[in-house]
Write a protein that binds this DNA or RNA. Structure first.
Lengths: 185, 185, 185, 185
DNA sequence: GATGAATGAGAGTTCATTCAT
DNA sequence: TATGAATGAACTCTCATTCAT
């Protein structure tokens, strides 16, 4: 039941936004009552936190396996880009909620999530730095800014990319890698 | 007064989001009453539409002057990237509201705004296509996807870039252009 | 202007009711502003009182000319019934407002209108009494109750009678007189 | 609770009218909060519809038992008149609300109630027609108009008749029947 | 585990009215 | 004569939350 609530909530939050989804909306789609909701979650915000933590923890875990690979940094970056794009197909709604609704977390929770998000970004940055040191990437790059740019390209996909449309996720990941490695000129 | 309301609303919508900003919040900041708000706007949604239209119309107009320049497509693209990044310094809050709150427009208004957004994107795509035709960009590029990637890089900046921080907007624009043109390898 | 406001208000009050017609509604249909309304009327209630007084004064006046006729009481009654029915064609909306919206007058005004309404009824009752005394009507009748019954038949017509429909006002008046005089058996 | 709300609302609607009775007024009389109201009714209009339906359904049901009696049409008509008048004593406020506030129903609901009202009137008309066919009533009568006249006499009583005043409901019903059957001449 | 009745604060919106110009 | 800006109170309705059962 608890997981049912969470999954339905993700879909509703994605479609209507956190603030505009009421507890009533959630329980109605499940055919249960509000009491049930409060049996499993102490508040609406706690549910949101739950969703955030699951999402980022999962992402961090998968990033970790990439990081610990015995691969070149270029290959690692390629894999991370693929990981983020392909995620849209698998966890699109979670991701959208994650990117849009952090504002509704309370201070403490927001801090915790932010720490994890930054950890993800810092790991990405570290791969770039390492790649520069190993002469895999241009030496004049600023790893911090590049990391943001890469996240921009990938995360923005949540806004428009439809994995069941013309372009497949694999394909998009390859195009993006190529753009980031080689540019358009 | 009407403009005062609009400006304050943009700031509040940016900080707290559209749904979590009440009319009360808005008018209190201005020291007027709710009646005043409804004298100038017929609804909260109409105010949001007003903000959206001003923002995208301004952007389209400036895009137009770039488009009509007698410059290479590469130069045009560079100018558009700069335009979008520098905009954060000038109209940051408007932009954030624009990117986040479109969901709260009613169907008709959403459609209108969407049309304008797509026009902006299509114009960008056209510049890339043109650049390919003129041998300025690689001929195997897919203009549509590249346009989305560029918008990802620039628009995502609204999420993290602070123009009064260490990195200047000009600088960021140059780094991004370089990334997009030449890649990181 | 003052009369324009009054006439349009009658139509709006008839269609939507007093409480659900706003000053805004009234001035909008006239293409003027709220200020104009308050230049001519001190309040919405005063406008309603104005409408009531015009209506009942006119009715009383016409009742008076019937009353002072040198006719039999039966003929007088017949004329009064015709007067009330035919009025629907000429002043239908005024009448509806009159019958429905008295509740919204303030105490003093309500008392005044009520006095006039009762005067009309008492005059009707007097004609019946007179007719009984003159052996025109059955001697066992109770004039007060009969007066109410007659007003019921006529006033209720405001609820359904459409003078431009199949039945003409003249015709309806004759049918009603016949019913009241002779019954249905 | 739901019924408590309904009963109190009827009294308030009768006294102040639908538009001028606020949800606040209703719940205050009951010592509960607005939330409670909306727990039981989805809107103010739905409450009004509830009141309308109860009233007219009850009336139709009782009309049906009269209609199915093995009595002369004259007797049936007499019973219907009595039914309507005596109803004032038992359901006066409901009736007043019913006659005055139909305008505030939404289109669909208004249509439904109208259908039922017309069914009642048509049944009345049928009794008159039947009575004419059986030579109980004059053969030149127009049943439709007569039905409206009878409803006028009875329904108008809601405007003035006080069943705990001098005249009893039984008495009034008899006077009205006599008027309708025999006229005043 | 789950329900259903109830709360209370606050949301967006409407509206009669005022008043300086 | 008429306007237009502004008010403030009231309105219908929503919602996260509580709690006895």
């Amino acid at each position: 039941m608890k997981n049912d609530i969470k999954q339905k909530s993700i879909l509703l939050f994605e479609k209507k936004g956190f603030s505009d989804t009421s507890i009533q909306d959630i329980v109605e789609t499940l055919g249960v009552t509000k009491g049930t909701f409060y049996y499993y979650f102490t508040s609406k915000e706690q549910l949101l936190m739950d969703i955030h933590v699951s999402y980022i923890d999962d992402l961090l875990e998968r990033q970790e396996t990439v990081r610990l690979n015995q691969l070149s940094n270029r290959k690692k970056l390629e894999e991370l880009i693929a990981l983020l794009i392909i995620d849209i197909a698998n966890h699109g709604p979670s991701g959208k909620v994650f990117f849009r609704e952090m504002r509704h977390l309370c201070e403490d929770n927001a801090r915790e999530v932010k720490r994890k998000r930054e950890k993800f970004r810092k790991n990405l940055e570290a791969i770039i730095s390492e790649g520069i040191a190993q002469n895999e990437f241009k030496k004049e790059l600023e790893p911090g800014i590049i990391a943001f740019a890469i996240l921009g390209v990938t995360n923005w996909s949540y806004q428009w990319f439809n994995p069941s449309g013309e372009i497949s996720a694999d394909r998009l990941a390859r195009v993006y890698s190529d753009l980031i490695f080689n540019g358009i000129v």
